[in-house]
């Protein structure tokens, strides 16, 4: 299933990656060659095989419900691109 230009545009939008018009053909071609490699998987018989999400198949440890953080807003916001009155600023959000 080779990707077409419109697929690439859709994926780029989902991933919020701006695409340069001029790069789209090459990007499409490269992605298709990677997917060609990946598609070799389809020949493997995996009937009855359980997917493996984690190598050790351990289980989740739970944390006690204890507050252990204090306010470090100034330090965290010192590295932020745009803040005012303690808020992170972004272009107007329209709902």
């Amino acid at each position: 299933m080779a990707l077409e230009r419109s697929d690439v545009e859709k994926i780029a939008h989902l991933a919020r990656l701006g695409l340069d018009e001029a790069d789209i053909p090459r990007t499409t071609e490269t992605l298709n060659s990677i997917l060609g490699l990946v598609d070799r998987m389809q020949a493997v018989d995996t009937d009855g095989i359980e997917p493996l999400a984690h190598p050790l198949e351990a289980t989740q440890r739970l944390r006690a419900d204890v507050v252990g953080e204090s306010n470090r807003r100034d330090a965290y916001q010192a590295i932020a691109p745009a803040v005012a009155e303690g808020l992170y600023l972004v272009p107007k959000v329209i709902e």
């Binding site: 994926i11 780029a12 990656l17 701006g18 990007t27 992605l31 990677i34 997917l35």
Partner: peptide, 21 residues
């Protein structure tokens, strides 16, 4: 879109797109 397009290099963008797909 622009922060990510300008901030990430080609290989990173490729892998993000493969993974998104």
């Amino acid at each position: 879109k622009r922060s990510r397009a300008e901030g990430f290099g080609a290989e990173v963008k490729r892998r993000i797109m493969v993974g998104t797909y």
